[in-house]
Each structure stands twice: as C-alpha cells, then as structure tokens.
Design a protein around this nucleic acid. Structure first.
Lengths: 144, 144
DNA sequence: CTAGCTGCAAAATATTTGCGCGAGC
DNA sequence: GCTCGCGCAAATATTTTGCAGCTAG
C-alpha cells in the first residue's frame, strides 16, 4: 500500500552525480549549503552543474538518505545523517553543528488540544557563537 | 554604559512610514513577510517603497519594537509582539501562528559543558497543517 | 547645514525551471 | 523508444544597496 496522491513511485537511478553528492555529504561533519556541496563535488566531477546539485539534494531528501535542515537563515543546509537531531548555529559565521541533546519526544503532546493545527513535528535550534567567533567577539568587546 | 563596538547611539525618528509599518504589524495576529507588510502599508501610504519597508523592519527590530522570526523557510517573517514565544508553521501554506506553550527556560543549561559554543539562545518551531490545509489534505488522502 | 530618511532602480543572493541532448532499460 | 537525468542558461524570489533629493532640528 502506497501513500495516495504522492509521487513516491518515481524511478530513481543512483547516477554518478547523485552518488558523489551523497558521499561528500556523508563524509563531512558540518552541514553545508548547496553552494558548498557544489564546490566539493566539483573537485570530483568538474562538469557538474549547480542545478543538478539542487535537484539531487531534493531527490536524496525524498529518498530519506539525507535531510534538509529546517534552520532559520537565508540559505538551506543539508545533513548527511537522516536521523532526527537538533542543531546549534553560530549567529556570526553561520556554522552549524549538532547539538548534544536528546530529542524532546513528548513536547508535541503539550500542544494537542491547545492548537487548531494538526501537528507534524517540531524543530529546536540553538543559537550561539562558535569558538572562533566567540574569541573574536570577546576580544572586540574588551578592546573596544 | 553602552555596549562597545555597536552603533546603538543612532538617532532614529518615528517617521510616518515607520509608524504605519509598526501599527500594521501590531494590528494583526499573523506573522507577515515583508512583502505582505508592504501590501498592507501601501493602502495607507501608496507611495512607500519596498526598500523602505525592509529598512524600517530592520530598524524596528533593533529598537526592540518587533521581532524577526527565526523560522525555517525561504522568507523572513515578522512579529509585532517582541516577547519571546514559540510558533507553529503550516508546511503547506506557510501560515504561522503562536504556539500555546511556555518557553523552555532551562533548556539551554543542558548544553553548557557539552558544546564548544557560547550559547546565546534557542528557538523552537512546530510544524503542522493549519485547519484549512488539514481539511484539503485529509480529503485528498481519502479520495485518492 | 547636517544627519537621517525616502523612493526608485539596480544589484546581490539563493533557488528553480525550461530546454534539448544523451544514456539505460 | 521512453523515461529519467544531465548541463546550461534564463527566470524567479527575496533582500540589500547606491544614489540623489527631501525634511526636521
């Protein structure tokens, strides 16, 4: 039985481009934007286009191989680990790391009955300064 | 004593444009994007430009009169209520409402010592289907 | 006069899409 | 042959910026 009304029966081949994008994303610990993935993948596939990177990131998300991070900020970022976990984002440089905290599994229950929405999920993002930016920031404050 | 290195001494007048933007944002319950604010404000100030709207939203955030929502999604949204609170976003239509749940004041403590970041804050966003989209979605599933 | 603000338009940024070609089944 | 995916370029969407003129103090 398949979910009706959703095109989940689309045939998808593991093309070289798709494979390399997935490999590069799995290989790193950070959470790159499409642009950064493009730069890395191009070292191995110099002729790949940015459009292909965007298209394949979308496909890989649909396949559940990766996840698109639901973070604030202007650029979308991708995570090679498809499991649910939280993130912390540097407000200065945009760097994103995993947040070492377990998922709040029951927090959505608090909303049942109090919202008109049909709840699907939630997303917790911490903001802060990464070590590099924290150092610069601190130095500036003390000196200024 | 002022925060050093930050231009917080800038003189800012409450111009007609700025006042109308603030009034319109305070008047509504939803959390409009700059574009929607522009359309509403233009009914009262037909000659205002979109650039002015963006500039003033930025200024009003700095003044603490409004807040820019740190939500995922491609467009920035603004909240006329400057107090900290969480939101729920419809994944279908992008509508954003306040989430009826109290702030998790101590959650940032869980990260101290376990992250290299200097923590500034956090942000919890729920995702779901608003009543309108939920109805359409449900109908589609049953019919499909 | 000066600093801040405006409207307008162009630029910048990030992402999506149309198109024609090529490869695999 | 048909479908899917590709590279390329153009289009789209959103936000920022340069500029010259205006206004309040």
């Amino acid at each position: 039985m398949e979910i009706k009304g959703v095109a989940c029966v689309k045939k998808m081949r593991m093309t070289p481009q798709r494979r390399v994008i997935l490999e590069e994303l799995r290989r790193v610990n950070d959470h790159p934007a499409a642009d950064e993935i493009y730069r890395r993948v191009r070292k191995r596939l110099p002729k790949i286009s940015l459009g292909t990177v965007y298209r394949n990131l979308e496909v890989l998300c649909e396949l559940g191989e990766i996840q698109r991070l639901e973070l604030s900020g202007s650029t979308k970022r991708y995570d090679g680990v498809p499991n649910k976990h939280y993130h912390i984002r540097c407000v200065e440089c945009g760097r994103v790391d995993d947040a070492p905290i377990a998922p709040l599994n029951q927090i959505e229950d608090d909303l049942y009955g109090t919202t008109v929405y049909e709840i699907i999920g939630h997303n917790l993002e911490f903001t802060g300064l990464c070590p590099q930016c924290s150092r610069l920031h601190g130095a500036r404050q003390e000196a200024g």
